[in-house]
């Protein structure tokens, strides 16, 4: 399949983008930065083409369904969401520093799709439970939310690195000096979660609406549902904790990272470790 080959090449391009963003850091060269951004946009464009082409291929096989329905496709789409959201943010905040902490996520997830054993890139027709229009709304909102959380996690890591150096009393030298100020990082952690949280909420609601059609119940405490609720609790905690002073900054960054761990467990852990109704992705 051509689309799977396109995904493989896009994977290497994401690796190149990641390396470029890191070099931008190391050499602080504006030209390298521009190059990183340019290549990322081109990669995203090819990535979009790969997803669309897979859609076309599904029609050629006489199946005809959106490429959002199995582990492989969801990983490819997750990576796409991360790259898109990051690049939009980069435009908005006019800083490329976050790139070195956001692009690796886009690379890792798409690489996992192409390289991990047991993840099939075959286009299979939809089983009855997945034959629903709720699928699109549910998958798109969930992964946009997850992508925002991934970027938030990246920024949180930056925050913790920077504050650690500061606490050790070291003079800000080398690459952390390039990091945005702590307040800006803290603000960005909040802003990315302020995008992710409503998206996750809509993802859970569309999932509940779908479950009500398919399983006859909008909520059945299935492990996937429960873990999405745990994730929701963690980010709700983040948003509320910010109102009290002692939970800002470092603790908020930790909650954001714990939240992303919960996202990853909801996404992978539930499938690999726990049995439940939601066994497709």
């Amino acid at each position: 399949m051509i689309s799977a080959k396109m995904v493989s090449s896009v994977t290497f391009l994401y690796l190149a983008c990641t390396v470029l963003y890191f070099n931008y850091f190391a050499f602080r060269s504006e030209r390298l930065g521009k190059f990183a951004t340019g290549l990322s946009w081109i990669t995203l464009l090819l990535h979009t083409a790969a997803i669309l082409w897979r859609w076309v291929e599904s029609y050629q096989l006489g199946i005809g369904r959106a490429p959002l329905t199995n582990m492989y496709e969801s990983l490819v789409f997750f990576s796409w969401c991360i790259a898109l959201l990051y690049l939009l943010w980069e435009r908005k905040i006019k800083s490329r520093i976050i790139g070195a902490f956001a692009m690796p996520f886009a690379f890792l997830f798409i690489a996992y799709a192409s390289l991990a054993p047991g993840i099939s890139d075959r286009i299979d027709p939809l089983i009855p439970a997945l034959q629903s229009n709720w699928l699109h709304a549910h998958v798109i909102t969930c992964f946009l939310g997850y992508a925002a959380f991934a970027i938030s996690c990246g920024v949180s890591i930056m925050y913790l690195i920077k504050i650690r150096k500061k606490e050790q009393g070291k003079k800000e030298s080398g690459w952390t000096a390039l990091f945005p100020p702590l307040e800006s990082l803290d603000d960005l952690i909040y802003k990315t979660i302020a995008v992710g949280f409503p998206m996750l909420t809509i993802g859970i609601i569309t999932g509940a609406a779908w479950a009500n059609y398919a399983w006859g119940s909008y909520w059945s405490w299935d492990p996937k549902e429960t873990w999405s609720l745990i994730t929701w609790f963690v980010y709700a905690l983040f948003l509320h904790a910010r109102f009290t002073r002692e939970w800002r900054g470092k603790r908020a960054a930790f909650i954001s990272i714990i939240g992303f761990v919960a996202v990853i467990f909801t996404y992978f852990g539930v499938n690999y470790l726990l049995a439940g109704l939601h066994s497709y992705v």
Binding site: W221, P223, W227, I230, F233, A236, L237, H240, L274
Partner: peptide
């Protein structure tokens, strides 16, 4: 409460 509910829910899935 959010922390307790999250931890309890984890037990419920395990």
């Amino acid at each position: 409460l959010l922390i307790i509910l999250s931890v309890a829910s984890i037990f419920g899935t395990v």
